[in-house]
Amino acid sequence: MRISECREEDVALLDKHMPSPGAAYDHASRFARHREGASTLLIAWRDELPVGSCEVVWTGCQAPEVRAVHPDCSEINGLGLWPETLRSQCVGTALIQAAEELALKRGLVKLGVGVEKNNPRTADLYERLGFRPSTPYLDCGSYEDSAGRTHRVADACTFMVKTLAPPQKDVAQP
């Protein structure tokens, strides 16, 4: 497996092989933000197929409750794997670690992620990787169904934060 930043030609492969995480976070919209520099879209590849992706949003979570507490915290958003049989095979962990490396290269000291309260398995993964629960919030959005009707949704979430530390260099003992 390898992790890379999304290229324009990768968007069609994402559309073909991975379901989109929602209208505001369809692959083309995420790539547009990536191209503008507002985020970095990462893809996990197995052989030549995309099997996971996530977006690192450099401006952070847009929920007012989170911005009030963590105004300078970038966010991992829309992490997904496909097919779901790839869960528990370190694909998500590899994407998260790549996001952390990118944040450290930018000189950032905190990285966060929103987790739905009804998703304890995902919260457990983030806790194992050093993220700690911080701020409850509602993740509000909307989507359009196949009949063209707009549906508004609000998911109860917890914003989890990790303080990043650069890798330790080996120091020779006298």
Rank of each mutant, 00 (worst) to 15 (best):
E55T: 11
V113D: 00
F131I: 02
G37S: 11
T40Y: 00
R33Q: 15
G141N: 08
A23M: 11
R106A: 07
T59A: 11
G112Y: 03
L104M: 06
E75C: 15
A28F: 03
L14C: 12
D72K: 15
G114F: 03
T85F: 01
L42F: 15
R128M: 04
R46F: 11
G60C: 00
A24G: 13
P83F: 08
V113S: 09
R46L: 15
C54W: 03
V69A: 14
F31G: 11
V109R: 12
W45G: 03
D124M: 12
T135I: 11
D47I: 07
A28K: 10
P19E: 14
S29P: 05
L138M: 15
L49H: 00
L86Y: 14
I76H: 05
L129V: 02
G37P: 13
E101V: 08
A23K: 10
Y25E: 09
H70Q: 13
T40Q: 07
L41Q: 13
S74A: 15
Q89S: 02
C73W: 06
A44Y: 02
V57K: 13
D15C: 12
K110A: 06
Y137P: 04
I43L: 14
A99H: 07
E116Q: 12
G114R: 01
E84T: 07
V113Q: 01
E144Y: 04
L125M: 15
W82V: 01
L102Y: 08
D72G: 08
D139T: 00
L49V: 01
D124P: 00
R35P: 00
W58L: 14
E101Q: 13
S29K: 11
Q62I: 11
R121F: 03
S146T: 07
C73H: 01
H70I: 03
G80E: 10
G130Q: 14
V91N: 05
A63C: 10
S146V: 12
S39I: 09
W58R: 02
P136W: 13
V56R: 02
A103F: 11
V56N: 02
W58S: 09
G78F: 14
Y25T: 10
G78Y: 08
E100C: 12
L79H: 05
C61P: 04
Q89I: 00
S134K: 06
E100V: 06
E101P: 00
E101R: 14
A38M: 10
D47T: 06
C90Y: 10
Y126F: 15
S134R: 08
L14Y: 13
C61S: 11
V115K: 06
E36A: 15
R67W: 01
G114Y: 02
G22N: 01
V51P: 08
L49N: 00
A68V: 00
T122I: 05
L95P: 12
D72S: 14
